[in-house]
């Protein structure tokens, strides 16, 4: 059985303009020690998926209305608040897009990492309060050393505003990994960083995952990042997964017209004389999503059935009428 199995997850946001159906039946799984990439445009529901897994959707306005999230055979949507808190930050930890705003500006990096250790580390249980603090601080410094920070003692005593974005993201990774989580959810971890730093951070994440035997759910809109780091990939469009599979398969032969479009939209050095390709149209409004297949208004291969009936994920690979059912 896989480490994480998300089944038919539905998360809605109740706003004044109407109900935003941000996730409309999302299913995927992350295997043990595997890295799963979740790709899609801005606003397609990637981050909502990530937050729904650990029940961090702000309520109101959001609500997880259906589905299950099986993590180590436990349905995270059904466990008590206490249990989910014990899992957050220990078994499942998260890193986010903007490392600078993801760290609290009024506490030092070391304090913020130590807080996680104090909260979850079983080794500290029998120590006195003072010893606990000292031990947690030592572990925080060690975590900073592990993520490749040169002077961990100095950085631990620094505040987030004194560090660069890359340093902050390394610190966030240290914070996320300090309790050896079995699953790391990384929500666009490199998007806000410079390209050179991006590569370093990805490299670091790969190393750590190997070292700690963790699984990763990597959320990104960057297909290059997926190709480089992931074993499996799922492509999301308008709150649904429209294609998934092994990274090699999907990149070699993308099936869904949307995935194809995404691949073609990657600029390439060889083809630089050509104009950049794009997918016409824009992400649909999720209050009133299009009927049938949600991609049909932008699809070059649209058929009659696409407008009427929603395709399922045929063979667990692609949700498109071109490949299944009534051809």
């Amino acid at each position: 059985m896989d480490l994480l199995e998300v089944k038919d997850l539905k998360t809605y946001f109740y706003t004044y303009e109407g109900t935003v159906k941000a996730l409309e039946g999302v299913s995927f799984s992350v295997g043990n020690r595997k890295t799963m990439g979740l790709v899609g445009e801005t606003g397609c529901g990637k981050s909502v998926t990530a937050l729904s897994i650990t029940r961090l959707i702000p309520d109101p306005p959001g609500k997880i209305i259906a589905g299950s999230v099986l993590f180590k055979k436990k349905d995270l949507l059904k466990v008590s608040d206490e249990e989910i808190r014990a899992i957050r930050g220990k078994d499942i930890s998260m890193i986010f897009q903007e490392p600078k705003s993801a760290l609290n500006p009024v506490y030092t990096i070391g304090d913020q990492i130590a807080e996680n250790v104090l909260l979850h580390d079983e080794d500290l249980k029998n120590l006195s309060k003072k010893e606990k603090k000292r031990e947690a601080w030592a572990k925080s410094i060690e975590a900073l050393r592990v993520v490749g920070i040169a002077e961990p003692e100095r950085i631990a005593r620094s505040y987030p505003h004194e560090l660069s974005g890359g340093m902050c993201q390394r610190s966030m990774i240290a914070l996320a990994m300090v309790c050896n989580p079995s699953l790391l959810i990384a929500d666009e971890p490199t998007t806000a960083l410079d390209v050179t730093i991006q590569a370093q951070i990805l490299e670091l994440m790969k190393d750590l995952i190997k070292k700690f035997d963790s699984s990763v759910l990597l959320i990104t809109h960057n297909l290059g990042v997926v190709a480089e780091t992931c074993d499996d990939v799922a492509v999301m469009y308008a709150g649904k997964i429209i294609e998934k599979g092994n990274v090699r398969e999907v990149f070699k032969e993308p099936l869904h017209p949307y995935t194809k479009g995404l691949m073609e939209a990657i600029p390439s050095v060889e083809k630089r004389k050509e104009a950049l390709k794009s997918i016409p149209g824009s992400v649909p409004n999720l209050i009133n999503p299009p009927s049938g297949c949600r991609f049909h208004p932008r699809c070059p291969y649209v058929k009659e059935i696409c407008k009427e009936k929603e395709p399922e994920l045929f063979d667990g690979r692609v949700a498109c009428w071109l490949y299944g059912g009534a051809r």
Binding site: T54, L56, K90, S93, E98, S101, A102, L103, H120
Partner: peptide
Amino acid sequence: RQDYIRTARSKGLR
């Protein structure tokens, strides 16, 4: 609404 509050929640704090 800030990101660091989300981070704090994701740590499993009460």
